[in-house]
């Protein structure tokens, strides 16, 4: 993956990061630095929790080479918003229970958070959430993607996601035959 060099901004953010030990500094693939509450990062991301626990956090910016700056900004934004919206009692439940918790509908602010994203930003964010093991953010972004697919024909879905139809006419007809019943009310 090609890395963009962020120059001036990097210096600026570093100072802030070093001043406050309640935060961790994350570095995007293109070299930009972002600061996020250590508590929120550990609670929302299993990967970051592991890094914090394992001491592999770099004060000068922990490298996240797979995540671009725009996506990382959204991740950090999400963490900070989440930290503010959760009552402190919930902090006790750590990330252990994440995988077993049933899906809760996105909250109003989460909905707004993903609704304002471009499709590209959503794509990058869902990948980042997946990479960082952020169960809740992954859930919310996947929910958004599923809403973008609901009630749409394959053609409409292809248009939304800019996907090329790689089926031949014959192959599509075969699928239709196979599952003819699902299309009765087409």
């Amino acid at each position: 993956m090609e890395v963009d060099k962020g120059k001036g901004e990097a210096e600026e953010t570093r100072k802030v990061a070093e001043a406050d030990r309640d935060t961790v500094t994350l570095k995007s693939s293109d070299g930009k630095l972002f600061e996020v509450s250590k508590e929120a990062a550990a609670r929302l991301s299993t990967v970051l929790a592991g890094m914090i626990a394992g001491g592999s956090i770099d004060d000068n910016g922990t490298d996240l080479k797979q995540i671009g700056s725009e996506a990382l900004e959204n991740v950090v934004d999400y963490c900070n918003k989440h930290a503010n919206s959760i009552p402190s009692a919930a902090l006790i439940s750590s990330s252990i229970s994440f995988n077993t918790a049933p899906f809760k509908e996105p909250e109003e602010w989460e909905r707004k958070f993903v609704d304002r994203l471009s499709h590209d930003a959503l794509f990058d964010l869902v990948e980042a959430a997946n990479f960082l093991g952020m169960e809740r953010l992954l859930d919310v972004t996947c929910h958004k993607i599923s809403e973008m697919m609901k009630g749409k024909s394959p053609d409409q879905i292809r248009e939304v996601f800019n996907i090329k139809n790689d089926y031949t006419k014959e192959e599509l007809e075969e699928i239709r035959q196979e599952l003819a019943w699902a299309f009765y009310d087409d």
Binding site: E127, K150, G151, K152, P154, D166, Y167, I175, A182
Partner: peptide, 27 residues
């Protein structure tokens, strides 16, 4: 889109929606 993510998206869709949509979008 990674397999796991598309799978998680499909889990949020109803049977017919998968069959009429995602199933026929691309290979």
């Amino acid at each position: 889109l990674p397999h796991d993510i598309l799978f998680a998206v499909c889990l949020k869709l109803e049977l017919r929606e998968i069959l009429r949509g995602a199933d026929r979008v691309c290979k």
